Simulated assay, not measured.
Amino acid sequence: MTMAIGRIHHITAIASAPDRNLAFYEGALGLRLIKQTVNFDDPGVHHLYYGDETGTPGTILTFFPYPGARAGRHGAGQAEEIAFAIPEGSLGFWQDRLAGLRLAVEGPAERFGERLIALKDHDGLMLELVEDEAAAALPGRAAEGIPAEHAIRGLRGIALWVEDAADTAQVLTEVLGYEPGPVEGNRSRFVHPGAGLGRIVDLRAVSGFWAGAMGAGVVHHVAFRAADDAAQAAATATLAARGIRVTPQQDRTYFRSTYFREPGGVLFEIATDAPGFAIDEPVAALGSRLMLPARYEPHRAAIEANLPRLRPVHDTA
């Protein structure tokens, strides 16, 4: 089932050292670096995109790496616990692999009847690997030490930590097309009826918990899919009718975006599926060199001189 709006397009987080970020996500987890560019609003900082072979919406995790960035604080008003989908039967492989890399892992545990393990990257970003019954039908990309049958398929979902879940739930159901699902403790699950990845958003009611603070190891925003500009505009109109301010559309080269802060405080984006990541380099070469939007191209030499060098993964293991 294809839906015009909803399901996760990508998640963006703050990181510290870009070389360590690359080593972890491409080297340890086996994701593909599909684009290296800059923060379009701050060209002195990399913007690194990881995903599947082509950067399919729903597989994309991105980072703004600020060398020496102070650690953020996990708390209310933030997106936490980024969940990756892996095929059923793959949890043992990942436990062994992560233990071999001397990475601390919690679990296995069970939530809503699904088995998972939890870990953090070097900045403290909360991650989960969840066995998903539908994952085996999605293509897996083999990487060094990771056979295709056990590879991460993409983003399963995200948890939002909010003081009061009711208003956030209305945005999920009335604007982004999610439907209420099961409840476990303080966690309410919302599931999108569309097929594919990024269908899960969990709301965790954390009333009385301290507020989160932005910094390394914290999610910056969660982007949801729009099939096209018309679907994005319709969602924007619905939000405006609810009294929620939405930015004008921003051209991010690989998609077009609008942004708003949902009632619980988490920054949301609505991003178009098109034009995709092969617009400025062929699929075989994705992520191999720094790509800049046209307005920054005249300043390439200065920008490249200012950015930290991205070391190859085998140099950072």
Rank of each mutant, 00 (worst) to 15 (best):
218 V>Q: 03
150 H>P: 10
34 I>T: 01
232 Q>A: 08
51 G>P: 09
174 E>R: 12
47 H>K: 05
114 E>T: 05
236 T>V: 15
293 P>D: 12
133 E>A: 13
268 F>K: 01
218 V>R: 05
306 N>P: 02
33 L>T: 10
226 A>S: 09
169 A>C: 07
198 G>H: 08
317 A>L: 15
228 D>C: 11
289 R>N: 12
181 G>E: 05
269 E>K: 04
310 L>K: 07
118 A>N: 07
110 E>T: 13
280 D>E: 15
206 V>L: 03
197 L>P: 06
276 G>P: 06
88 E>R: 06
185 G>A: 03
68 G>L: 02
234 A>E: 13
253 T>L: 06
287 G>S: 14
26 E>S: 14
1 M>R: 10
199 R>D: 09
272 T>C: 07
259 Y>I: 10
37 T>Y: 05
244 I>P: 06
214 M>K: 06
89 G>I: 07
256 R>L: 04
41 D>P: 08
43 P>S: 06
152 I>L: 14
110 E>D: 01
132 D>M: 04
295 R>E: 15
27 G>E: 04
33 L>M: 13
297 E>F: 10
172 L>N: 02
65 P>Y: 06
140 G>A: 08
211 A>I: 03
44 G>E: 12
80 E>H: 07
170 Q>T: 11
301 A>G: 05
63 F>R: 00
233 A>F: 12
26 E>K: 11
243 G>S: 06
232 Q>Y: 12
2 T>I: 15
95 Q>L: 13
143 A>Q: 09
228 D>P: 11
201 V>D: 00
11 I>E: 02
6 G>P: 12
266 V>N: 01
107 G>C: 04
189 R>K: 08
162 V>H: 03
63 F>T: 01
64 F>A: 05
228 D>G: 09
5 I>T: 14
5 I>K: 07
39 N>R: 07
296 Y>I: 15
100 G>Q: 07
205 A>S: 10
315 D>N: 06
74 H>A: 07
300 R>W: 12
207 S>D: 07
106 E>R: 04
57 P>D: 00
93 F>W: 13
88 E>T: 15
200 I>A: 00
83 A>S: 10
222 V>F: 02
95 Q>W: 10
40 F>D: 02
53 E>C: 03
293 P>L: 13
198 G>K: 08
142 A>K: 04
54 T>L: 11
316 T>Y: 01
39 N>Y: 10
28 A>C: 11
289 R>V: 15
138 L>S: 09
300 R>L: 14
286 L>Q: 14
43 P>L: 04
228 D>Q: 09
152 I>T: 11
